[in-house]
């Protein structure tokens, strides 16, 4: 049994209690994925599973046999940042930086959800296939990712600048 993590095959852990988050952090030393509550309330542990955002703290690693995980390390690195990572730097979409990887992973998948026409709580027309990528849509869809430093305005600016076209 193996999981693909950022393109590398990784053994599924023997202990079935190991969360995907702890596998990433403690097993693989991929510390970019953060632990902020370990109970699905803060979003800091968000990773991409086959392109969809998922809370790795609420997922057991053994569930992911044959699946493909992308963490923040798989999106980009200093010198070769993902455009959204670069936009976070330019718009100061963080302060301490702890919630940041989760915000970025979440936003990347969130845009795909909008593009596919998945409605949110603030979507006014549930029958439309096209969702307006508005300020409210972005804020609502990112509300599972807490930022205690309060970098929300910069985060939304960075997402808007980088991903608005992709969403539409």
């Amino acid at each position: 049994m193996s999981i693909s993590v950022n393109g590398n095959a990784v053994q599924v852990p023997d202990d079935p209690r190991v969360s995907l988050l702890d596998l990433l952090r403690d097993g693989l030393h991929l510390h970019g994925t953060k632990k902020g509550c370990n109970q699905g309330a803060c979003g800091a542990c968000t990773v991409l599973v086959d392109g969809e955002r998922m809370l790795s703290c609420l997922s057991l690693a053994v569930q992911f046999d044959g699946r493909s995980i992308t963490t923040i390390e798989g999106l980009g690195e200093p010198g070769a940042l993902h455009p959204l990572q670069q936009a976070f730097v330019e718009h100061d979409g963080f302060q301490c930086g702890y919630c940041t990887p989760g915000q970025i992973c979440s936003a990347v998948a969130m845009v795909e959800e909008v593009r596919r026409g998945v409605p949110s709580h603030v979507t006014s027309d549930l029958n439309s296939n096209v969702i307006d990528f508005s300020h409210d849509e972005m804020r609502e869809r990112m509300s599972g990712n807490l930022c205690r430093c309060g970098a929300y305005n910069g985060i939304i600016d960075a997402i808007n600048e980088t991903l608005k076209e992709a969403a539409e």
Partner: peptide, 18 residues
Amino acid sequence: SRIDGPLKVSGKAPFAAE
């Protein structure tokens, strides 16, 4: 812009439990 920004946005800034 923050000089440690690229480290933080790429998950490479090391925190205490890391």
